[in-house]
Simulated scan of single mutants.
Amino acid sequence: MNLLMCPVCREALALEGKTWRCKSNHSYDIAKQGYVNLHVVQHKHSKNPGDTPESVRARRSFLSAGFYAPLQQAVVAKIRELRIENLLDIGCGEGYYTNAMESEAIQVVGVDIAKTAVQVAAKFNQNVTWVVGTGAVLPVLSETIDLCTSLFSPIPEAEILRVLKPSGYLMVVTPGPQHLYKMREALFEEVKAHEPHKFVAQLSEHFELIDESLIQAPLVLNQNDLKCLIAMTPYAYKAKPERREQLEQVEKFELSAEFQIYILKKKS
C-alpha cells in the first residue's frame, strides 16, 4: 500500500520506476541517495530549513557512539507492544531512531524538513521511505498510519490527526525534567527543569494518554563527544559563545540524560 501523498494536489502518489507520480501528473524523482523531496516551494519559509549540516554531523557522531541507546531500545520495546503496521516518524533527522523502529512495522516513513539529515539517513537504510517534507503538510495520505512518532520534534497536531487511522497512536519523546541539567548549568545563568507534561495537556482534547515512562542514561563524555552533544542541541546557538567555549575545553564531563516517553491514543 502506498502511503505518500502529493503535497500539491493531495492525491495519492504511486511509484513508477524511480519517480513518485500522482493522477494530476505531478512527479517527484527519487534522489541518488534514495530519498524523495516532497517539500514544495510554496511550503518553504527559508532556503535551507531544518538542522544545519554541522548539527547533523554532530548528532550522527554522538548517537552512533551509543550514548542514547537506552532511549532507542525503550522506544523499540514500546512500539513492539503496540503491534502496528504503518509508522510515520516526524522529524526523523539522520535516522538513528527510525532505523531501529523499522523492525517493528511493515512500512516506515521517515520525514524531516532538513535535506542534509535525510540524505544521511537514506544512505544507511533503504527499507525506510525517506522523505524531505514539512509537518505543516505531512506528505502522507489521510487515515493510513497506525503510529506517528515525534522524538524531540514538533507535534503538528492537526496533521497527525489527519494521517492517523481512527484507532491510531502518537508517541512523543521529549526531554525529562533533569535532561542534561549539568550541561545547561554550565552554559546558562539560569536553568529551569523541563516540563514535559505540558505536551499531554496540550494534546488532551484529541488524544488520551495511555502510557508514560521516564528513561535515564548516565553519560561520561570525552572532549569530542561533549562538543558533539553541544553542537546537536539548540543550546549551541542559544548559549553565550564564551560559555560554550569554556565548556568545550573540559576533557571529561559527567552528566545525565533523561527522556520522557508518552504514548497517546487518538480519541474516537
Rank of each mutant, 00 (worst) to 15 (best):
M5I: 14
V8C: 14
R10K: 15
R10P: 05
A12E: 13
A14H: 14
G17P: 11
N25A: 15
S27V: 02
V40T: 15
H43R: 15
K44M: 13
P49M: 06
G50V: 10
T52K: 15
P53D: 11
P53K: 09
P53F: 05
E54N: 07
S55W: 01
S55R: 14
S55E: 09
A58I: 08
R59M: 00
R60G: 04
R60C: 04
S61D: 12
L63G: 02
G66C: 02
Y68N: 02
Q72N: 11
Q73M: 13
A74Q: 12
K78Y: 09
R83L: 07
E85P: 11
L87Y: 00
L88R: 10
L88Y: 10
G91E: 04
C92F: 06
A100F: 01
A100N: 04
E102Q: 14
I106Y: 01
V108T: 06
V109K: 07
G110D: 03
V111R: 01
Q126S: 15
Q126L: 11
T129C: 14
W130C: 08
T134L: 04
G135E: 06
A136W: 14
A136L: 14
T144N: 07
I145S: 06
S150L: 08
F152A: 02
F152P: 03
P154C: 07
E157M: 03
E159A: 14
I160M: 13
L161I: 15
L164N: 07
K165T: 09
P166A: 11
P166Q: 13
G168Y: 01
Y169L: 08
L170A: 07
M171N: 02
T174G: 06
P177E: 14
Q178E: 14
Q178L: 13
H179C: 11
L180H: 05
Y181C: 02
R184Y: 08
E185W: 02
A186D: 01
F188M: 01
K192I: 03
P196Q: 06
K198E: 12
F199N: 09
V200K: 10
A201I: 10
Q202Y: 07
L203C: 02
S204Y: 09
H206M: 12
F207S: 03
E208P: 03
E208M: 06
E208A: 12
S213P: 00
P218V: 10
L221P: 08
N222M: 02
Q223I: 04
D225C: 00
L226H: 03
C228K: 08
I230V: 15
A231C: 13
P234K: 08
Y237H: 12
K240E: 14
E242F: 10
E242S: 09
R243M: 07
R243S: 07
E245W: 10
V250F: 10
V250D: 12
F253S: 11
S256Y: 08
A257D: 01
Y262M: 05
